[in-house]
Simulated assay, not measured.
Amino acid sequence: MYLKTLHLRHFRNYQEQKIEFNAAKTILVGNNAQGKSNLLEGVELLATLRSHRMARDRDLIRDGDAIAQINATLERANGVCDLTLTLRRHGRRSVAINGETVRRQMDFLGVLNAVEFSSLDLELVRGSPEVRRNWLDTLLIQLEPVYAHILQQYNQVLRQRNAFLKRSQESGVRSQESELAIWDAQLVTAGAKVIRRRDRAIQRLAPIAAAWHGSISGSTEVLQINYAPNVPIGKDQKEEVAQAFLGKIQQRSAVELHRGTTLVGPHRDEVELIINQTPARQYGSQGQQRTLVLALKLAELQLIEEVVNEPPLLLLDDVLAELDLSRQNQLLDTIQDRFQTLITTTHLGAFDSQWLNSSQILFVKSGEISM
């Protein structure tokens, strides 16, 4: 797939900017806080309808404006299409394909595929379990767009069940067992779908990431990625996940009523990253942690390409500065012209002449782009 044009209107610090991409690699050069990352964020939103910065829609709209719009022309094996995302400060976002409004967001997802790699991704190793869940969910949305709907359903039931538990806690009434049973059943139904898909995704991703990790580390380190669901899962997943989930939630119901919140479910899952049988967050240097994150990102690229039968876009946000020379070379050699790549940087020193000669170079200053 190839991103031909990107048009940003009132998005972040862009008033009105249209970019035409004319090379497989585009390098965006500029000082910090000029809008380089904002441009990549616009592409990421078209791919996943999520921002890795976890921004709210109103934070994405330029100060003083009511609406922002991101528009792109994308060329894929089956033809060219036009994508539009409209963000509203006081209202719901909307999406359109070829000018036709799309009612279900999952029908918009999967048209553009992209993998973002930024300095924030080092939190995948060092950060909380929530960071790793968000990473896995964003990947899953691209592998199976229906997952966005499944996750939304789960989170909605979770919010409603938590509200019920909170009311029960505050009122001190413990007699609404029949209503709690209804919320339990709904949470189990939605949550089991989340668990099964997360498990399947990690099973597919883990061996690819381990192979990349071995390659980058010179086979000196062994990477394991384990899905550690809050609800234990067995071999016969379909029946066992739901039964185990229901059993555990019923077992913890008294504690949940006391605390006023849901303590069981995929919102408490963990993804374990293990190097040489030691948890990665406790292991070694920042360089080794960066190797792990680089392996994860290369594995994402490969897995998405295998699933959608086209190479996704690669968005590299100021990440070369975080990598030493050997890891930079590993990444740049892997990319070549296989993936359309948008790279942000504050200077061109990290690139050799061959890369520079085969790349489109754009300069970004105060939300304006020049050649």
Rank of each mutant, 00 (worst) to 15 (best):
Val241Met: 05
Lys18Cys: 11
Gln34Thr: 05
Glu368Val: 11
Asn155Thr: 03
Glu179Gln: 15
Ile369Ser: 09
Thr291Trp: 04
Glu310Arg: 12
Gln105Gly: 05
Arg88Tyr: 03
His267Ile: 10
Thr262His: 06
Ser37Val: 00
Leu46Gln: 10
Ala228Phe: 15
Leu296Phe: 03
Ala33Pro: 04
Leu323Gly: 05
Arg204Pro: 00
Ile369Pro: 02
Ala228Asp: 14
Ala163Thr: 04
Ala244Lys: 06
Ile150Asn: 06
Lys36His: 07
Lys193Ser: 13
Thr344Asp: 01
Ser178Tyr: 08
Leu46Gly: 07
Gly287Gln: 05
Gln15Ile: 08
Val194Asp: 03
Val241Trp: 06
Asp269Arg: 03
Glu272Ser: 04
Gln302Lys: 13
Gln142Arg: 07
Gln340Thr: 02
Thr220Ser: 10
Gln330Glu: 09
Arg132Tyr: 03
Glu130Ile: 05
Asn13Pro: 01
Val231Cys: 10
Gln153Asn: 13
Lys297Glu: 08
Asp107Ser: 08
Gly110Tyr: 01
Leu136Ser: 09
Ile343Glu: 02
Pro229Asn: 11
Ala66Leu: 11
Leu187His: 13
Glu41Phe: 00
His258Glu: 14
Gln340Pro: 00
Ser171Cys: 00
Thr86Glu: 14
Ala190His: 11
Thr262Pro: 09
Ser119Thr: 14
Ile19Lys: 08
Gly64Asn: 13
Gly79Asp: 08
Arg9Pro: 00
Leu187Ala: 12
Ile275Val: 15
Arg58Cys: 00
Val111Gly: 02
Gln328Lys: 13
Ser119Lys: 11
Asp199Phe: 06
Gln153Ala: 11
Ile61Arg: 14
Val173Phe: 02
Arg9Met: 07
Glu368Arg: 15
Ala295Leu: 10
Ala114Leu: 02
Gln340Cys: 05
Ile27Gly: 05
Asn230Ile: 01
His149Tyr: 12
Leu292Trp: 09
Arg88Val: 04
Ile61Asn: 13
Asp57Arg: 15
Val222Tyr: 10
Ile150Pro: 00
Tyr2Val: 13
Leu3Glu: 12
Asn22Leu: 06
Ala210Phe: 07
Arg126Gln: 07
Trp135Arg: 11
Gln277Phe: 01
Glu116Cys: 12
Leu45Gln: 07
Thr220Leu: 08
Ser285Ile: 02
Ile216Gly: 14
Gln277Tyr: 03
Val29Cys: 08
Gly260Cys: 02
Leu246Phe: 06
Phe351Ala: 01
Gln328Met: 04
Gln156Ala: 14
Met106Asp: 12
Gln69Arg: 10
Leu180Gly: 07
Asn38Trp: 01
Leu331Val: 01
Ser37Met: 01
Phe11Lys: 13
Lys25His: 09
Glu177Phe: 07
Asp317Arg: 09
Gln243Tyr: 06
Val95Lys: 00
Val307His: 12
Leu263Ile: 07
Asp184Ser: 09
Leu187Thr: 14
Thr101Pro: 01
Gln336Cys: 07
Leu294His: 07
Glu170Lys: 15
Ser168Tyr: 08
